[in-house]
């Protein structure tokens, strides 16, 4: 038992060390941050204009249960989360192609845990920055994000959201162990996130049959749950959403582990 506890403690320390160094490396990418932030400002500005026109045309303050303020902040949260996730598929694909994976695999630390630690650290850091940038647009146009407990929901659900997001991307990324080229699959995954994941439009505003389909897919757990809960914490069942995230984490976790276990046997580490 002591041995197991010791191993877990060591694994947590290693995860923390990878998260810390990833964060330090992030601080070196200043130009990347500026460009991303400018792009985020631009798209949020376009969304604010679009939704303002839609609400004006509708002549109603509430559409599908969302006020204009809620919908704009919903988009800030989904965009901030989407753009926070590092390009895991491209990274693993590159590691396999140029053989850098050799350096990772010869370390006494799980390859998946390494990438998870690095992913979460980078994504959380970017998420906070993007929230700041998004606020610069949303706040002046639709007012302060006075969502009370919604912020707590956002904080709690974002960890689960990024975990499910990591696992979804990892399933696709690990296909690089067989095919080396996974950008196409990554593209499909991204677009599913944009649509049935509720990035551009809250799932509540979709046709009922599509809402039923979305309820059985993992994508809602990534963007819809945290953003929806943030803007309307009273109407959300936090425990149920956490339960769904946990279930998807367990299911996808098993899948990712199995794909990795099989893939690493097949892997051809390139390069001399």
């Amino acid at each position: 038992m002591n041995g197991t506890a010791f191993r877990w403690k060591a694994a947590v320390r290693k995860t923390g060390a990878v998260a810390q160094i990833t964060l330090r490396q992030q601080l070196a990418y200043k130009a990347d941050f500026v460009f991303r932030s400018l792009f985020l400002l631009l798209i949020l500005f376009v969304f604010v204009q679009l939704w303002s026109t839609a609400y004006d045309g509708e002549g109603s303050e509430v559409v599908g249960g969302f006020t204009l303020k809620q919908i704009v902040w919903y988009l800030v949260f989904t965009e901030a989360l989407t753009m926070a996730g590092p390009p895991l598929c491209a990274r693993i694909e590159e590691e396999v192609k140029n053989g850098d994976i050799a350096v990772r695999l010869t370390r006494p630390f799980s390859y998946l845990a390494y990438h998870y630690a690095s992913y979460l650290s980078e994504a959380l850091f970017r998420f906070v920055i993007h929230l700041g940038v998004g606020s610069a647009i949303a706040w002046p146009f639709v007012g302060a994000p006075s969502f009370g407990f919604g912020w707590l929901g956002l904080a709690v659900l974002s960890i689960g959201a990024l975990t499910v997001d990591f696992l979804l991307k990892a399933v696709v990324a690990l296909c690089a162990f067989w095919v080396e080229e996974v950008r196409g699959l990554d593209f499909v995954l991204q677009k599913l996130q944009f649509t049935v994941g509720g990035m551009l439009l809250p799932i509540d505003l979709m046709p009922e049959w599509l809402q039923r389909v979305c309820a059985w897919l993992p994508f809602q757990a990534v963007l819809y749950f945290p953003a929806r809960t943030a803007v309307n914490s009273e109407g959300a069942n936090l425990a149920a959403q956490l339960g769904v995230q946990l279930a998807w984490t367990a299911l996808l976790g098993v899948l990712v582990t199995e794909v990795y276990r099989r893939g690493v046997k097949k892997l051809h580490v390139n390069g001399g």
Partner: peptide
């Protein structure tokens, strides 16, 4: 691995 680096670039 002479052609691969384990050091963090930045």
């Amino acid at each position: 691995f002479g052609q691969k680096s384990q050091l963090w670039y930045h």
